[in-house]
């Protein structure tokens, strides 16, 4: 694993403003409550979590910052593929994750929803070991990501497919080489087999006729779809989508959501979508985690979250202007 003496992500949070969840005013650490301990104790990779219900906000929440964070985690009946256990992450003075406890169930399409700049993309980077927590642990199929050796980490990553916000296609390769790249690096398949797989994946995302184009000749939506094809080409167990709907028109967003559902039905596995688009959440989510200020507000099966009594969750999932979340 490449060690970065200077964190290349740190500057992305330099513009954070007080109150936006990225930069903290001087705070006292939020003490763990008995419920926090129950959450941690319940983070067993082998078993599905039981529901943990808080009836009162955390006792040590300063200035009621976490009054809406009930930490309620409704049961799904399946084990978690990925678990965050009391994860803290800061970039300089900017605390991004502040005691995050979250599980992403196996075999379901999960969505991590939350306001902009609240740490959703940072979560993805922790799952694949691009970032390490300052405190806490991240488990993938029960294995601790921060404690892996470099070789273990590279092996673990082969189980992942990641769709980055802009596709992250390699600018020096055409589309077919981009999608074929993981197959050429990690399999012993013949070139004919590789090209068969690649063409099938490109057809699935509607790019069969654009296979010889370079990334700079593609629109944003096409790059995203190509990134999707590349993310799926090794048939990964866990697929992460970082805002797949950003910059897409509503029709293309709907089509992309359908595509995610179809491929999930075909392949199974833990699919995780990061977004703040509620329509996408209504279309594809089977499990939702609402993240705000570096912690989970509530999480559970989608239909239950959409009927939540929590004022913040209700406001966010209905997109209303009135409620706990303001412009500050």
């Amino acid at each position: 694993m490449s060690e970065t003496p200077r964190d290349p992500y740190a500057d992305r949070y330099d513009d954070a403003e007080p109150g936006d969840g990225l930069r903290d005013e001087p705070t006292t650490p939020v003490a763990a409550t008995p419920d926090d301990e129950r959450l941690r104790a319940d983070d067993s990779p082998a078993s599905a979590r039981a529901a943990v219900v808080r009836e009162a906000p955390p006792a040590a929440a300063d200035d009621d910052e976490y009054q809406w964070h009930t930490g309620l985690n409704r049961p799904t009946g399946v084990a978690d593929a990925v678990e965050f256990i009391d994860v803290h992450k800061a970039f300089g003075r900017n605390k991004i994750l502040r005691g995050l406890n979250m599980g992403l169930p196996e075999g379901k399409i999960s969505m991590i929803l939350g306001p902009s700049g609240t740490g959703k993309s940072v979560c993805i980077k922790h799952m694949v070991g691009l970032l390490y927590p300052d405190e806490g642990d991240v488990l993938v199929h029960g294995e601790s990501v921060p404690n892996m050796t470099d070789d273990e980490l590279f092996d673990m990553r082969k189980r992942f497919g990641v769709l980055f916000q802009d596709g992250a296609l390699f600018g020096s390769m055409n589309l077919i080489d981009n999608v074929a790249f993981p197959l050429r690096q990690h399999t012993d398949k013949s070139e004919d087999e590789i090209l068969d797989i690649v063409r099938r994946r490109l057809d699935e995302v509607g790019l069969g006729s654009a296979h010889d184009k370079m990334p700079n000749e593609l629109s944003g939506g096409m790059r995203k779809r190509a990134g999707f094809a590349r993310a799926l080409v090794l048939d990964p167990n866990i697929v992460l989508f970082d805002e797949p709907d950003s910059g897409l028109d509503p029709v293309r967003t709907a089509l992309l959501c359908e595509l995610i559902q179809e491929i999930h039905e075909e392949n199974g596995g833990c699919y995780t979508v990061i977004t703040h688009d509620i329509m996408s959440a209504r279309r594809v989510a089977e499990f939702i985690s609402v993240l705000w200020k570096g912690r989970i507000v509530e999480s559970g099966p989608a239909e239950e979250l959409f009927n939540s009594e929590n004022a913040f969750v209700r406001q966010f999932l209905s997109g209303e202007s009135q409620g706990p979340l303001g412009m500050e």
Partner: peptide, 18 residues
Amino acid sequence: SMRISDEIDALEVMGIDS
């Protein structure tokens, strides 16, 4: 440019030592 367009991260998550 590869760093800011997430291409280096994409390499890493494919299990390749960037």
